[in-house]
Design a protein around this nucleic acid. Structure first.
Lengths: 321, 321
DNA sequence: GCTTGCCGTGAAACGCGTTCCATACATTAC
DNA sequence: GTAATGTATGGAACGCGTTTCACGGCAAGC
């Protein structure tokens, strides 16, 4: 493997001059520049990126911590990150943590070990304090709202509230909700929105641990066995909504007549099922998170709230008396 | 930032000994080992991974080239890669190319520049020959079948044939197909299967450029305007199938009575729509591709064929006369 | 008693590009 | 005419961990 010292010898210049040519620095005479270029071609030189990284102390790489790369919304955030990274000449390393604390530690360790210049945390199970201990090593941007932390987020409180108010405006008073991981920041905000908007909350109408299509089907069965049921359900994700709808249709119920359902995400599933859903611009979240991660004002802990929009479908329509 | 020389000074040993302790090398006396460990704690030393990479010439990183990170099947492959990478102590860099040649070049360049130890090519637009020119710099594994190339793939010919034969076994003789990118390896194999199985092929029943839900809806409109229509359709993906089914239902057609539809992928959409589909174990593809990329027999160009399975749903059932 | 071989340790070279600092000449400014 | 700038170039240090080689000590083998 030829290196810049070989080039210098071949072109009869110093390594400094070679480096200057490589980096398009001015202050190199045209003939020497050409000599170096010729040497590069002749020897088939290719820059060793690792050496550049060691020398400059920059990896031009951002790390991404997320639980699952193949979940639609996380993939959408990743898509935004990928676009932005390419535009800026950055790469990104993805770590799939499955919400396992030790895996998340590995990611933080990577920041400390200077494998990446910064970190985007899409979702996590470690405490924010624990994560922030690593902020001394570089920018850490969350895709969730936390106080005094760089973050790009949607306001789950208002987003959930808009879903609930939509159901209310359609005449529903018996409204239930589905939540994902019970103790996540998002779930807490959503629960609060529920308690503030549809008070007093009946805990039997809060369905926990709703994450997948299967969870949705479970909830549907739970619902159909209840003596006192809600007439409308705001779910935690389109997947859950899909599971509910499919299971209930299988059981002969009609949507939205027997149960109005609103999803969350604005995914492909929503299109297919003509689902009313709270659309979240995940791609934008990814893009914004990336730009904070590479900006130099990340120490100011910028916070960017991304608005959501209610997407009308047929699974929640006005109740006809 | 403290480095191993600082540690050596603090622990009053040589840098070699420090390095040995760091790498759990034997041949270090217990007291010196402890002295180094103490120094590490005292000075808060953290290994600089970039320096390790430069020194060892290994990045312990695999690059992944794919067109879109947020397409379900690519994300599923990524999921497999992510799992395997974590287990093996590797990281992976993802490049989203959008099938743009210059972007794909960037990825190949990264291999040459030793940013990654190897490359997994999920899908590409550059020619195989062009890509293989970079094999001198490290392993390149394809997730598609090509001769004399390391690859993990599903046999699109037999997979498509199984779909076509299923339709035939249900009594269909008027069978059409949807293809994705016209000149991709996959499309060619699929077309061949079609021509061999449902001969003679009517080109009016080959719908090209079928990639998204919207494309599916377009095809549905095309189909409904044809005077001579197929009674069954084998699509290129569940997305396309979903688009077709939704558009036709909107127009008042019944599935599968008016048109039997089989999807491809075995995605969430298939579950939701109760779609008959050719299920592909994408995760397995990712895992296998990864293990080839880090194995040392990649120069033998191992080829691994992954089997597919037909998943029965309600969108293609026996034709009742 | 002498050779082999294992254990333990360190100096120095290596991988490779970047950059600080010094030097030298050519302009431009006052 | 002299001082201040700008252009061009190179030597050497730097970032930092790994690894080769050499060497001293000690125990087992014959």
């Amino acid at each position: 493997m030829t290196n810049i010292r070989d080039l210098a010898r071949e072109a009869e210049v110093s390594v400094t001059t070679v480096s200057r040519v490589l980096n398009d620095h001015p202050y190199v005479a045209e003939d020497k520049r050409r000599a170096v270029r010729d040497a590069i071609t002749k020897l088939g030189y290719i820059r060793n990126q690792t050496a550049v990284q060691l020398s400059t102390g920059q990896t031009k790489t951002i790390g991404v911590m997320l639980p699952y790369v193949d979940h639609p919304y996380h993939a959408a955030i990743l898509h935004g990150i990928a676009q932005c990274a390419f535009e800026e000449g950055y790469r990104f390393l993805t770590w799939q943590t499955n919400y396992i604390a030790s895996h998340e530690q590995t990611v933080l360790q990577a920041l400390a070990q200077r494998e990446v210049d910064g970190l985007i945390i899409v979702s996590h199970s470690l405490s924010v304090d624990e994560i922030l201990r690593y902020e001394q090593y570089g920018p850490i941007v969350f895709c969730e709202h936390h106080e005094d932390v760089s973050s790009v987020y949607i306001n789950h409180y208002t987003a959930f509230q808009s879903g609930l108010k939509t159901l209310q405006s359609f005449g529903h008073t018996q409204i239930g909700i589905c939540l994902g991981r019970p103790d996540s920041t998002n779930s807490r905000a959503r629960k609060q929105a529920y308690q503030d908007t549809v008070a007093p909350a009946d805990t039997a109408w809060i369905y926990q641990q709703a994450l997948t299509i299967e969870d949705g089907a479970d909830i549907a069965r739970q619902w159909s066995n209840q003596s006192c049921r809600p007439s409308a359900l705001l779910t935690a994700s389109d997947h859950v909504a899909a599971g509910i709808i499919l299971e209930l249709r299988k059981q002969g119920y009609r949507i939205p007549e027997d149960l109005a359902v609103i999803g969350f995400d604005g995914s492909d599933l929503a299109v297919v099922l003509n689902l009313t859903t709270v659309a979240v611009p995940y791609e934008t979240i990814g893009r914004q998170a990336f730009s904070i991660a590479i900006s130099d004002n990340w120490r100011d802990h910028p916070q960017i709230e991304i608005p959501t929009a209610l997407l009308s479908g047929l699974t929640a329509v006005e109740v006809k008396e």
